[in-house]
Design a protein around this nucleic acid. Structure first.
Ligand code: FES
Ligand code: FES
Lengths: 153, 153
DNA sequence: AAAATACCTTACTAATTTTGTCAAGTATTA
DNA sequence: TAATACTTGACAAAATTAGTAAGGTATTTT
């Protein structure tokens, strides 16, 4: 239930790789492909969307690749996912493009809206910087959950 | 992004209708169908799952229908959705049935797990009783958000 | 008994969405 | 001018969703 598509997942992971090159080293699609195990052709599609959204910019030619347009701390996960999967909309009733005639008098409408707002708020607090900082900690394995800012415990 | 299937949505709305009959008045599929605008055939599929899960029980024959097996306050939304859509699993890496070889060393894994845990915790706090109590308030329209326990504000 | 009510079960399918691939381009640098 | 690397749009297989359809079982009322 409530799955994220691979596009969204790969997108975040690709953004993480690009963030590692910030601010001066463009990261090529090929590098991302190898490190994150996603095909070059699929990444092209994903990165194009993110570039048009202004989250990254591209440098063509040899030595080129992709660069973040802002500091990793200024790029939150929600903004990445929104470009690739549209707004958080638990039900189509919530989708700005769709709507629903039953909204008034619907007992569940506020529930879904509230859940969506919570999800969005959470994803907005996590940035690429958080992922970058977490990376070295990952080598310490899963033994010390408290050190993770967004651990489950 | 993060959509709920119609099965889950209809399921919660159906459970709300059944809860209205608690503890003594069985609610028929036809009534649910008319009040919530979902086909009888589709509801049969949904209610069958919920019955097998033990959330509701059925009374056959004239005067029959469906009844909650517990107090509305004891039935949370997460338990309904889990039966109809499986566990919260933002990514397939999190799905108990699937798994992922990259888990260790994956910077996003904990992020998705944490999000999933938050969603689940939220849905576990909302029960059918909350929906029943909310119903009369809905007639006051959307003017007084603070009165709703799970308003967005 | 039999008619009416209402749930039960399985199978099937049309539509949609997801998850990509492919081919042919454009821009930049060495 | 050759090599590198991004750009774009079309296309398609696979999976999932969102149902429908048909026939069966159990219970109550007359
Ligand atoms: S059915 Fe659309 S708002 Fe509830
Ligand atoms: S890719 Fe599966 S855990 Fe990150």
């Amino acid at each position: 239930m409530l799955k994220l598509s691979t596009k969204g997942q790969y997108g975040v992971r690709a953004m993480f790789e690009i963030a590692r090159g910030y601010p001066e080293s463009p990261v090529t699609i090929k590098e991302i492909s190898e490190r994150q195990d996603v095909s070059v052709a699929y990444l092209e599609q994903i990165l194009n969307k993110l570039r048009r959204a202004g989250l990254i910019r591209s440098v063509k030619g040899p030595g080129g690749g992709y660069l973040l347009t802002k500091d990793p701390g200024g790029v939150n996960i929600a903004s990445i996912l929104k470009e690739l999967e549209g707004p958080v909309a638990i039900t189509s009733c919530l989708d700005p493009e769709e709507g629903c005639a039953r909204v008034e008098g619907c007992v569940t409408h506020l529930l879904w809206r509230s859940l969506g707002a919570k999800i969005e708020a959470f994803l907005e607090t996590i940035t690429l910087r958080d992922l970058l900082e977490k990376e070295p900690l990952l080598k310490d394995l899963d033994t010390d959950h408290k050190r993770y800012r967004f651990g489950v415990a």
